[in-house]
C-alpha cells in the first residue's frame, strides 16, 4: 500500500503531508503525556518488528502478495491509536528515506492511510468488538482486518483524486486484494498480541482490557 512518488501530483502530496504532520505532532504529545521510560523498550521492539515484518510479503492468491501493516497491532498493544501514528510514521519515514519503499512526496498520504486511518480503525474496532464479544482473538482479528481494508479503500480514493486509478476499478482492486491481505494482518496481529502479552503482561495494555 506504499504509494510511490509517481502515483500522485506533488500538490496533492503536500496536502496529505500537512494533514499527516498534525497527527504526527499529536502523537508526539501522546508520547510525552502517556508514555514513560518503562514503555520505551516495548515501543522500540514493536517498531523494529513491524519494520521487519513489513518486508516479508506473503502470497495471497490472485497474483498478489501482502504483509502486515501493524497499525492495529501497535494501537491495541499500547492502548491508543496514537501509538500506531507514532510507530507507523517512523517506520514509513525509514522505509521511504533509506530504502525507497514509498515515496517522499507521498509519505504524508502513506502515514495518513497506514498510521492514522489504520491505527484509529484498528483501535476503535477492537474496543467496540471487545465490548460486544469479550473475545480478544475475534476482536483483534477483525479489527486488524478492517485496519488493512479501510486504509486500502482510502488509498484507492486518493489514487482516484490523483488521476492514477479510475474510482470503481481502484476500489475493486484495492478492496479485493486487501480483503485477502487483511487475513494475514488479522492472523499475525493475534499471534503477536499473545506473544507480547506472554512475555510482558505488565506493560501491555491489551491484557488489562482482557482481564477487566
Amino acid at each position: 500500500m506504499h504509494i510511490p512518488d509517481a502515483f500522485m501530483p506533488i500538490s496533492q502530496g503536500i496536502i496529505y503531508w500537512a494533514i499527516a504532520l498534525v497527527f504526527i505532532a499529536l502523537s508526539l504529545r501522546w508520547v510525552r503525556q502517556e508514555m514513560d521510560e518503562t514503555k520505551v523498550p516495548l515501543i522500540a521492539v514493536l517498531a523494529a518488528g513491524i519494520f521487519a515484518i513489513q518486508a516479508f510479503n506473503l502470497p495471497v492468491a490472485m497474483g498478489t502478495s501482502g504483509h502486515l501493516v501493524g497499525g492495529a497491532l501497535a494501537a491495541i498493544v499500547l492502548g491508543s491509536p496514537w501509538a500506531a501514528v507514532f510507530i507507523l510514521s517512523l517506520v514509513l519515514i525509514v522505509q521511504g528515506v533509506i530504502f525507497g519503499d514509498g515515496g517522499i512526496t507521498t509519505m504524508g498520504a502513506n502515514i495518513l492511510n497506514m498510521g492514522v486511518i489504520g491505527g484509529f480503525v484498528g483501535f476503535y474496532s477492537y474496543k467496540g468488538l471487545m465490548a460486544a464479544t469479550r473475545n480478544m482473538n475475534i476482536s483483534a482479528f477483525v479489527a486488524a482486518w478492517l485496519a488493512c481494508l479501510i486504509p486500502a479503500l482510502a488509498c484507492a480514493v486518493e489514487m482516484w483524486i490523483a488521476g492514477t486509478f479510475p474510482l470503481a476499478l481502484g476500489l475493486a482492486g484495492m478492496g479485493l486484494y486487501h480483503a485477502a491481505i487483511g487475513i494475514i494482518e488479522g492472523g499475525i496481529t493475534v499471534v503477536a498480541l499473545h506473544l507480547i502479552a506472554s512475555v510482558r503482561p505488565d506493560i501491555v495494555s491489551v491484557t488489562k482490557e482482557v482481564t477487566t
Binding site: P41, A44, G49, F56, G170, I181
Partner: peptide, 28 residues
C-alpha cells in the same frame, strides 16, 4: 529478544518473501 526476532523475520523475508506485486501494484 525483540531485535533478534526482528532480524530472524528479516532473514526469512529475504529468502521466502513472495515476489508477487503488493495490493497497490496489483491494482495498478
Amino acid at each position: 529478544a525483540g531485535i533478534v526476532l526482528a532480524i530472524l523475520i528479516g532473514i526469512a523475508a529475504v529468502f521466502l518473501a513472495s515476489p508477487d506485486p503488493d495490493g497497490l501494484e496489483s491494482t495498478a
